[in-house]
Design a protein around this nucleic acid. Structure first.
Lengths: 308, 308
DNA sequence: TCAATACTCTGTCCAAGACAAAGAGCAAGC
DNA sequence: GCTTGCTCTTTGTCTTGGACAGAGTATTGA
């Protein structure tokens, strides 16, 4: 039994935190943090505590904070910051349900969790389940995670279980090849969060739409090709809060130019709420309820191109 | 309508190929390939063809070839090499099926594809479906993608459809809370390919195991915590061929030290085949059939810790 | 109140060098 | 003949410190 983790080298820290080596070195030069010890070869050896702090910083940056302002705070202060961010939202959640579910999550009772979710789908119906249960639950879980009340693996478990529940419910609907409109769902490269796609699908399928998901991280030009190949009426893109606003706007703009005008483009997800100006030819979906609105609006105004 | 992709910068190539920036620069210095053009700022601009060739090289390296021997071959020669390697295996796949499915994929007929997969699950049963259909299919699709016969989005579509088929089938099994052994499935950070986890789950659930998946990219220390929290008997980790061998071995070794000895650790996936030496306390699962073997072996030799 | 401009902050890229670990080849011994 | 141990070669990752472009912020002007 040896000392298990004396320190992380820079490659390991990159893996653990998602911060590139270049960036870690640059912060050391600029801010003096992190300032790792060196091994005999002169290579950086990061302490586990520094890695934790880096993770906390990364989280805060993902919601828009800037490194220069927060690198010198202690881990405690960083957590307090995360707290302050979410304190307003805590009232939103259906208290008994959220509590109940958080408890199951903390007891690591996957089976009971899944059963509860399945039961809720049955009772509420798929759409209501998404809008009234999953959405506030996501917020609750996200906040708890930010505050460190939830382990990373517990958050992973939650996401996985919700996905299972949603997929099961979606599959229960007969998938007609003639559904209208034809919706293609995916995310940009570097956007790994695919739960949003599934949530949208869960809202649209009961409305009779024909959804095809490509999963996450499709290169832009492939999105173009896919939209054309599938004769999509609507292209639905999802962006998490961590996605760089600029890249998203640029990419969506580019796509708009590449696709024929009769293909409607939806941009949704957390990031969408940070968008100020409207983007020509793009429908913003700042929350899930808007997706149903947008679908109905599409039906009212558009005739599917490929039909008839 | 402008030229869409004049070139990739080094960061984009890193993402596309999985070869680090450092490595790309080093190859340029050592081998003279790739030797990208420079933009006005003096930054590397890689041609799409170079990126394709880099992908081919990476793929060959993933099966054990060394860069010095192959960098100077043409893309055609590299493909021939890959061919020679897989020629034995190409016979494995049921030809009419693979052809049929590839055709559906190229016609972008998602509905028919899903129907075909669902039908196959029914006919073959879940385990046989995984071993005899999905595994060779994965190879076929992977090869076709390597040779540029398949668009990225078509590959995405395939993956997505297989996932749907598998999840549906897995959910059809009653999930007992008392299943034994308790298996926890996940991947390391930076490992985005989660299909392997689903495949393993699809093999184990019919055997009566209790599977809990955390999805992809769980930090190592959270894997430790999750394994303990879930009282896992087996921790199953999946690594794609692209995953850096070194990181994997180090991480797995670290985990072995962090977890009590009664937790069995499985390491599976493409990468596993490149491992030469045995890693103490780790069970290697070089192919999917081995997973069932390993499960039976576990049952023969181990008594679940948490039971009784 | 809103928009354009200037300035600061921040991340990525570059070059060339160093070194350690993995692989390959070869020799000695069973 | 086959294995074991050594050495040489190949290869990937880390190092420093400099440069610069794009994102975000603040200020100014309409």
């Amino acid at each position: 039994m040896q000392a298990p983790a004396p320190g992380f080298n820079i490659g390991a820290v990159e893996r653990e935190t998602g911060l590139s080596k270049d960036l870690l070195r640059m912060w050391e030069r600029r801010y003096g943090f992190p300032s790792p010890a060196r091994d005999r070869a002169g290579e950086r050896q990061y302490a586990p505590d520094d890695v934790s702090k880096l993770r906390a910083i990364k989280r805060l940056m993902d919601i828009g904070m800037r490194p220069g302002k927060i690198v010198h705070q202690t881990l405690g202060e960083l957590n307090a910051l995360a707290d302050a961010r979410s304190v307003v939202r805590r009232d939103d959640l259906a208290p008994p349900l959220g509590r109940n579910l958080l408890d199951l999550l903390k007891n690591h009772d996957a089976a009971a969790l899944q059963q509860l979710l399945a039961q809720l789908v049955m009772r509420q119906g798929l759409q209501q389940f998404v809008l009234e249960t999953v959405t506030p639950l996501n917020r609750t879980v996200g906040d708890a995670w930010m505050r460190g009340e939830l382990q990373v693996f517990e958050e992973h478990l939650y996401t996985e279980q919700v996905q299972v529940a949603l997929r099961t419910a979606i599959n229960a609907f007969p998938r007609t090849a003639t559904g209208v409109p034809r919706v293609l769902l995916t995310t940009f490269p570097n956007e790994q969060h695919g739960l949003g796609l599934l949530l949208v699908e869960a809202l649209l399928v009961p409305e009779g739409a024909h959804c095809v998901s490509l999963g996450t991280q499709t290169p832009i030009d492939d999105i173009r090709r896919a939209a054309i190949a599938h004769r999509a009426d609507i292209l639905a893109l999802s962006f998490s809060g961590a996605f760089p606003l600029r890249s998203a706007v640029d990419g969506v703009d580019l796509l708009r130019g590449l696709l024929p005008p009769q293909v409607t483009i939806w941009a949704g997800g957390e990031m969408t709420r940070r968008v100020r100006r409207t983007i020509p030819g793009i429908v913003l979906i700042p929350d899930l309820a808007s997706a149903i609105q947008a679908l109905r609006s599409w039906r009212a105004h558009r005739v599917p191109v490929h039909a008839g």
